[in-house]
Computed example of a mutant assay.
Amino acid sequence: MEHRSSFLLSFLLLLLLLNSASAQLKQNFYQNICPNVENYVRNAVEKKFNETFVTAPGTLRLFFHDCFVRGCDASVLLASSSNNAEKDSPIGQTLAGDGFDTVIKAKAAVDNDPNCKNKVSCADILALAARDVIVLTGGPSYTVELGRRDGTISTKSSVHSSIPLPTFSLDKLTSMFSATGLSQTDLVALSGAHTIGFSHCARFTKRLYGFSRRSSVDPSLNSNYAKQLQQACPKNVDPRVAVNMDPNTPRIFDNNYYKNLQQGMGLFTSDQVLFTDTRTTKLVNLFASNSTAFQQAFITAITNLGRVRVKVGSQGEIRHDCTTVNLRRDYMSFHRREEIDTGRC
């Protein structure tokens, strides 16, 4: 009973912190600071998107990773001279470079206006860019809450235990989302972002070869789909080879992801389990049959995600350069900055 009470208290404190922070985010935060910020970001993102489609899934995944590791504070963008930042972790190294480039170019576009220079956080620019790539691929538009500040700490050791993995069960996924204040409905809705983008073969080939003693192929996979994946990803395949997350409409942000799950065509175990586990089957069926229901749930979910452990007010900073903290950035190494920020000096 004592353990349960302690857990409940901790959970209530987490919700209180989340609600307190999100209450300070505003939809029109920059109205009197940089009123054209959304246009600047949107134009930069659209230009980058027209150069390469990878801009869309790359930017969206960057936002997800940023929020899950240290909260939505753009810590994922920080670089380290000692290769110790989030982006240097094995998971971070799978993030598309076009996602980082999108934010850097959007930041430059914002700072090109003298009235906006160094007044808009990289965290907010990333949140806006994520919304814009969703719209550019046919997804729903929504108003982004703003007012985040940028973090000053980024370590690769903090990544692995924070990011949902392709092999996770529903219990693990639910637990990880719950720890950030997100519901199981948020989990299913946000997973729908896998309707665009791609994955490298190494992240799912365990399902195709030597899955278990009883079956070399994951039995939850559609047999024809499994054969297609084996053709695209033979054993010992070049690690740079990738396949579309959605084999049917990979460049359109739609509800086809859920229709694929109904057919046993979820690329990751963590995708397919949303349909095979009865606790979430109904949501998958709802989103597969009702595009509006999916879009509404996704808007709610990504808004909730954007509130996770945000820094506001006097917390953090507004980085002049999204890849480095402001403190003595001309000559101080990333590792040394981190020591100062965490009080280890």
Rank of each mutant, 00 (worst) to 15 (best):
T303Q: 10
T205H: 04
K282Y: 13
A293H: 10
L261E: 04
D271P: 07
Y257T: 01
L229H: 01
G313K: 07
N304I: 05
R251T: 13
R214I: 08
K259T: 09
N304V: 04
S212C: 12
T276G: 07
H320N: 13
F294E: 01
F287K: 04
V273Q: 02
N248Q: 12
R240F: 00
Q231S: 08
A297Y: 04
L221R: 04
I302S: 03
R307N: 13
N222V: 07
P234N: 01
D271A: 09
C233P: 03
K282R: 15
I252F: 13
D277I: 09
S289R: 14
T300F: 05
S212K: 10
Q228K: 11
S212Y: 12
Q263A: 15
I252A: 12
Q262Y: 04
I302A: 01
G264R: 08
Q263E: 14
V241K: 11
Q231F: 02
L208A: 04
A293K: 12
P219Q: 12
N304G: 02
S215G: 12
S289E: 14
N222C: 06
I302W: 01
A293R: 05
A297M: 08
L261N: 02
L305S: 04
V243L: 02
N224R: 07
K259W: 04
Y209E: 08
V312N: 03
L229R: 03
T300C: 01
P250Q: 09
D271H: 14
N285I: 04
S215T: 14
L283Y: 09
N260F: 03
N255K: 09
P250K: 08
K227F: 01
R319W: 00
T303H: 07
V243Y: 01
Q228C: 02
T303N: 13
S215K: 15
G264N: 12
S314C: 00
S291A: 15
L286Q: 14
T303G: 10
A288S: 15
Y257F: 15
L221F: 10
P250V: 09
N285H: 11
V241G: 00
A301P: 00
T276W: 07
T278E: 13
R207Q: 15
L286E: 14
Y258F: 15
N244D: 09
G266K: 04
